[in-house]
Amino acid sequence: MNEMEIKLMDYIRKECLPDNSSYPLRADENLFDSGIVDSAGLISFIAFIESEYNIVIPDEDLLPENFISVRVIACYLASRLVKEECGVENETAH
């Protein structure tokens, strides 16, 4: 697990699971099917990611292929951060 995944998992443990939960959360777990995150939870999670990584997540990116699991979110974030560093503007289709 990379550093980003660990940080995201920590957030989920702290904000979405009961205190002292011993639940074995996995990086590739579907956060929605497991009931851990729903629409409200996703919006709070995104607010955390935006402030933690100092990026703006456009509404167009709120898709299962970017947010379904911790692993997927970490990949999305990594690609966003690389683009940001190289000065490539994030595609905002539509």
Binding site: L42, I43, D59, E60, H94
Partner: peptide
């Protein structure tokens, strides 16, 4: 924004 997230996570796309 939650509803936007709900629609898009469920398979809707903004036309």
């Amino acid at each position: 924004r939650m509803m936007k997230a709900l629609y898009q996570m469920t398979g809707f796309r903004n036309t």
